[in-house]
């Protein structure tokens, strides 16, 4: 029995490690290549003296930190707007019955499915006429359009897992409905909020077409800036690879940081 178990654990290790490597491969390859000296970039060789010269060059040539700041401002604000508007809406959809509830839900859903390309010209005109072109606000508004539906739908499924009886018993104990929401329900969907925030942050961080059209130099986000390493004369791999790694890095840090809150389980069962 012990033996069988041990063997199965070893198989588990091998399986999971292999799969992880398969998925990690391209990123690992890019990470290794980003430390290669320029002249070795087009060879598969793995023997080289790592250099950070590429990183320095990439950072200085695109004004990296100002783009990083822009990306942070835009993504954090988008998350905040989505949560402020989306949380109550999701709660409302779960806890209350009303006419046209389903149609409203699917209408919201269909906005999420709209390809940004289809809306980009109209959004440009909209922000031009409101004089917001080139501001952070324009990008935040546009990207919240493409993330608010996601927030509502994800949070809706988290709220569904919180039994109404919990809130009711709190109200019997003398809480108001709002108090019950803040004291009982909101903490229970904490992991849900973390998960939703991470996705909204991710999608607004990685958005490309919308910030491309709505920003200028002072408000350009990282993904827009790093595409500048693809020019009509080819791809500047020596700078694109380090810049890409640096673009992904904040997200990875965020993922590591928040993962222990999500790992507890997407709320289900936490209360069952």
């Amino acid at each position: 029995m012990e033996n069988v178990k041990k063997r199965s654990v070893i198989t588990g290790y091998i399986l999971i490690t292999t799969v992880t490597f398969l998925f990690l491969g391209p990123i690992l390859w890019a990470l290794i290549s980003s430390f290669k000296p320029k002249d070795l970039l087009y060879t598969p060789s793995l023997i080289f003296t790592p250099t950070i010269a590429n990183y320095q060059e990439a950072i200085s040539s695109i004004n990296f930190f100002s783009h990083l700041t822009n990306s942070l401002i835009i993504s954090v604000s988008t998350v905040l707007i989505c949560l402020i508007l989306g949380l109550p809406a999701a709660y409302g959809f779960v806890r209350f019955k009303f006419k046209m509830k389903n149609s409203l839900l699917f209408w919201i859903l269909s906005i999420q499915m709209l390809p940004p390309i289809a809306a980009v010209i109209a959004l440009y005109d909209l922000f031009l006429s409101t004089n917001l072109l080139g501001t952070h606000l324009a990008v935040v508004i546009a990207s919240s359009i493409f993330n608010l539906p996601l927030t509502v739908w994800m949070m809706r499924s988290f709220f569904q897992e919180v039994p109404l009886t919990l809130e009711e018993s709190a109200m019997i104990d003398g809480c108001t409905r709002i108090q019950a929401f803040f004291k009982i329900t909101l903490p229970l969907v904490g992991t849900g909020i973390a998960t939703t925030s991470i996705f909204v942050f991710l999608f607004s961080w990685n958005a490309y077409l919308i910030p491309l059209v709505l920003t200028n130099r002072t408000t350009q986000t990282l993904p827009v800036a790093i595409t500048g390493f693809v020019s009509d004369s080819g791809v500047m791999w020596d700078q694109l690879l380090p810049a890409s790694m640096l673009t992904v890095l904040p997200l990875v840090i965020l993922a590591i940081f928040i993962q222990k809150y999500i790992v507890r389980g997407i709320s289900f069962g936490a209360v069952k």
Binding site: T20, F23, L24, L202, P223, S244, V248, I256
Partner: peptide
């Protein structure tokens, strides 16, 4: 878990180029 979820975090434009 974190390593396995990394591909989600790669900016789509970058992943195409990559």
């Amino acid at each position: 878990r974190v390593l396995l979820s990394l591909p989600i975090f790669v900016t789509p434009f970058v992943s195409g180029i990559l």
